[in-house]
Design a protein around this nucleic acid. Structure first.
Lengths: 227, 227
DNA sequence: GTCTATATCGGGATAGAC
DNA sequence: GTCTATCCCGATATAGAC
């Protein structure tokens, strides 16, 4: 609307991405070739590469777009929930609804999770912007929640919840049960435990235990050295 | 020695694998081509593929071989340790010593961890035999240890420890700190916590907590449906 | 700036002759 | 078991139409 010159390209870009995701869902990530994608979008291979530098750039675009959509949905959803467990649950639920039909695509994203060099890794420097926004959702969930978080734990909690989400997503990608029912079960059982532990951690006697837990956490969450 | 006919092929196989691992260590997994590997082994590309169906089959062979070696080392190491923490630590330590120089190779193994279709995943049906033997090490560590494990927890504990090991390995693959010092730190901090929790779980009041934990565990460890 | 057509290359994998 | 030749595909590059 604002910039018709850009709009044209963005439309093409969207058409390619849409078709590519459809193919990924139908045939899987590996089995879908860039030539397939070009054909589905009704254009040449070269043009496709003009819009997306690589096959993986398509996955990145999906990841990006997902984050944008979620960004818009979260604030309203948050107004409807007060208690911490529900708030965290909403974030997770929206995420899973969105990723739902695209398990194969997510598989491609996580395929490189173990390789921090790889730009497509959800932990890489390249995906940092997206990751930070995702972590921010949990920050908001905690901030507006009804559970008072101990000061020493506060700075770590959003990242911890994000890691928890990543663990669930990994489990979900694996989960071959019908409709990924096991993941739902895991969520239902683990989230209350997490929140309970959080509430218990405030008890006066829990100081040393919490210190040990935080010590462990900060080893795990310690920022990586700059690349 | 025993079967000269088999020995010849196995020798070639070993030569290819050895050269490949050397190249992986030097150049990384992705940067090493099958043509490089063939050349290093002094043979044609096609012949190399006769011995290894794919590049990833080389990783699988390494994984297999590693497990074989460990199998031989564990029993003796176990005789030297009584307390549970030490016994588990020894298993982990031997594993890391073995994987040590081959971080890049292990990265390739875990790269497909998220894809359950993929035979190379350490969780796949294809790697089950190896996985089961690895789990058995922890079973032995627990059995001969000085901590009495509650009956309801007993069947789950070896798998839990194996998962713990997998988590550590994943962390280690990522770990860019010098000499992977952070992983060592994480091991030092998390293992005592794990063992303490185990000891505490026996206290009479801990019944319900333990039940919840086991409920959660069995969701995670539940065997996948047959493929 | 957007797109097509086409050539080329590197690398994983396979076929078939020997 | 080994080789040569070949295929497929991701990726790059380029020349040119509009």
């Amino acid at each position: 609307m604002t910039q018709p010159t850009r709009s044209k390209a963005e439309e093409t870009r969207a058409r390619i991405l849409e078709g590519a995701l459809k193919l990924f869902r139908e045939k899987g990530f590996d089995a879908t070739t860039m030539r397939d994608i070009a054909q589905a979008a009704g254009m040449s291979l070269g043009s496709t590469y003009y819009h997306f530098d690589s096959k993986e750039a398509l996955v990145m675009a999906f990841y990006q777009e997902s984050q944008d959509t979620l960004q818009d949905l979260i604030p309203e959803a948050m107004t409807k929930h007060k208690d911490l467990a529900s708030r965290v649950r909403v974030v997770l639920q929206l995420r899973f609804e969105q990723f739902g039909p695209n398990r194969a695509v997510l598989g491609a994203l996580f395929r490189n999770a173990a390789d921090p060099q790889h730009s497509l890794s959800p932990f890489s420097a390249h995906t940092k912007a997206i990751r930070d926004r995702a972590i921010a959702h949990f920050e908001e969930a905690v901030r507006g929640g009804d559970v008072k978080v101990p000061k020493d734990l506060q700075p770590h909690l959003p990242r911890l919840l994000w890691m928890y989400q990543m663990g669930l997503i990994l489990f979900w990608i694996y989960d071959r049960s019908k409709g990924q029912a096991r993941t739902l079960k895991l969520l239902d059982k683990s989230l209350p435990v997490l929140v309970s532990a959080l509430k218990l951690s405030k008890l006066p006697l829990m100081g040393p235990v919490r210190a040990a837990a935080i010590d462990l956490l900060s080893t795990v969450l310690e920022p990586e050295p700059a690349r």
